[in-house]
């Protein structure tokens, strides 16, 4: 099997360094408020990282293209699943006839009504005592 491609050591090290660097980048940008652009950027960086892993660590770049096809197929079917499901979940009540169906599930589950308030350690606090006092204790 000596004819197999052997990736040079340097390549692996560069890829790993880039992955670590990009991980830092996503954490850093997540603290900047870009509105809904945050998620786009986060997913973009994640996809760059994922491509580096797939093409270099998983050797897709040098492999038979059938293997790449399998991988891309999985992403395509995932895309189909999300997109078509969202055609429903994103457009519920689109005729506007029944305002109830617009937000079908946003009702709070009943069990929350029975839960006592807690502090940040999850210990119940007496509702009538001073909550702000409890709060200050821990910060």
């Amino acid at each position: 099997m000596s004819e197999h491609h052997i990736t040079p050591l340097k390549t692996y090290l560069i890829i790993a360094a880039s992955l670590l660097f990009l991980s830092g980048v996503t954490v850093w940008v997540s603290y900047i408020d870009l509105g809904s652009f945050n998620i786009v950027l986060a997913m973009f960086v994640a996809t760059v990282k994922a491509s580096l892993v797939a093409f270099f660590f998983m050797h897709l770049l040098w492999d038979d293209k059938k293997n790449l096809t399998m991988f891309l197929m999985s992403l395509m079917f995932f895309g189909i699943f999300v997109t078509i499901t969202m055609l429903d979940t994103g457009f519920r009540g689109d005729l506007g006839l029944n305002p109830e169906t617009k937000d079908p599930i946003n009702k709070r589950a009943a069990f929350y009504d029975t839960l006592p308030l807690t502090d940040t350690h999850g210990h119940p606090v007496d509702e009538h005592s001073d909550e702000h006092h409890e709060d200050k204790d821990h910060h």
Partner: peptide, 22 residues
Amino acid sequence: GIFWHLVDLIWIYLFPLFYLIG
């Protein structure tokens, strides 16, 4: 190895989706 990199690959998405939401 391929399996292990897949585990990494999935985490690459889980990390921003859970820990770094806007």
